[in-house]
């Protein structure tokens, strides 16, 4: 395959960026999108140019590191896959592909296609955990959990924190991510003790990071590589409003 690429290049977070055009003549349809970028970077290194910086780690769709906005969509044209699981057979010979970093005030560009997603870590640090004393794990059957609740919690916990929801949302809202993290604990008995304070603190941190609010367009869920459901956002709204009007935290 022959491809033309328009790739966002930015030397550091304060520099003005811009698009660079590249041509690749020998792209295999079986390559992943990231392998295609490896080929591009080899070519750039051989030409004595700076390779394109991009985030990646596991390359098997579970780590949430890869983060490219491809032809106007996070993780490219397929539903339910990350950029690393996108293959070049999804494109046609002679295509021009535009690749940009995630765009959000809360996700500043560090370099080229790499953005700083520490905002997500700070939201988790605010309350996305269960405080448990150390000791042996108790018997799994000691805590009865309804199958439906376990399934819903598991579906929410599938979120890999890649940030595609923020990238896709017209408001750069992080509500799908935050709601998945609130839901996975709110649905399980282990999460009950800190349920109210968790919702209050995580939402407060989400707002402090400068993410937008939800307009319920559904773009986040449609573009989520783990297909996290919008039901989680409704649950977060219930958790937050309920906590705010009933908790003893004034």
């Amino acid at each position: 395959m022959r491809l033309s690429l328009k790739v966002w290049r930015q030397s550091d977070k304060d520099a003005a960026g811009g698009f660079e055009d590249y041509k690749l003549d020998h792209v295999s349809p079986d390559m992943s999108f990231l392998e295609m970028f490896d080929v591009l970077n080899e070519q750039l290194i051989e030409e004595g140019k700076e390779p394109v910086a991009f985030d990646h780690d596991c390359r098997e769709g579970i780590c949430g590191m890869c983060s490219m906005y491809i032809n106007g969509r996070p993780h490219g044209p397929l539903r339910g896959v990350t950029t690393c699981q996108l293959h070049m057979r999804s494109f046609k010979d002679g295509d021009t592909i535009v690749v940009e970093p995630w765009r959000a005030q809360a996700f500043p560009v560090i370099k080229d296609l790499v953005v700083d997603r520490d905002a997500f870590d700070r939201v988790i640090s605010a309350g996305g955990f269960v405080s448990v004393n150390t000791g042996n794990a108790q018997d799994a059957n000691a805590l009865p959990i309804a199958k439906e609740a376990a399934d819903d919690a598991f579906a929410a916990a599938a979120c890999i924190g890649c940030g595609a929801c923020v990238a896709a949302c017209k408001n750069a809202s992080a509500m799908l991510f935050v709601s998945a993290k609130i839901s996975q604990l709110a649905l399980l008995p282990q999460g009950q003790a800190e349920r109210s304070i968790r919702a209050e603190k995580m939402v407060a941190q989400m707002d402090a990071e400068g993410f937008g609010a939800c307009t319920n367009t559904g773009a986040c869920s449609a573009e989520c590589p783990k297909e996290i459901s919008l039901e989680n956002i409704a649950r977060m709204n219930r958790e937050y409003i309920g906590a705010k009007f009933s908790s003893s935290a004034v």
């Binding site: 966002w8 032809n71 535009v98 940009e100 959000a104 005030q105 408001n171 750069a172 937008g212």
Partner: peptide
């Protein structure tokens, strides 16, 4: 929340 828009 999105000061820089997407080109595409």
């Amino acid at each position: 929340a999105r000061p820089v828009k997407y080109a595409v």
